[in-house]
């Protein structure tokens, strides 16, 4: 029961984040909104996993958390330099 309530409460939050992603005047607003949406999605997947009692969903949530971060960094880099391969950091 409680997971259903949590999932239903998560929906409007995700919807609002998506609204900001659509409305956001600059591209950075959209990236921020999509990143937040990704965090909400991770939590949503975890809650859904408990709701349907399939604990394997947690693995998917973990993978989503990874991909969310990498995607954000990739998009930011693309808008900052216009190129994925540009060397911006030395190793030390």
């Amino acid at each position: 029961m409680m997971f259903e309530v949590a999932a239903v409460a998560l929906f409007p939050a995700m919807f609002l984040a998506l609204a900001r992603a659509i409305a956001g005047p600059t591209v950075y607003d959209r990236v921020l909104a999509v990143n937040t949406f990704g965090t909400f999605t991770v939590l949503m997947i975890a809650v859904l996993g408990f709701m349907t009692d399939q604990k394997d969903f947690i693995d998917i949530a973990l993978a989503y958390a990874l991909i969310n971060f990498i995607g954000t960094i990739a998009v930011l880099k693309f808008f900052a330099v216009g190129d994925f391969g540009y060397q911006q950091e030395s190793k030390k």
Binding site: A74, Q87, Q88
Partner: peptide
């Protein structure tokens, strides 16, 4: 996921 890890490395430290 493995490729994503390598891509993150390439993104941050450069393609070269």
């Amino acid at each position: 996921i493995f490729a994503a890890g390598l891509i993150l490395y390439a993104l941050v430290f450069g393609l070269d």
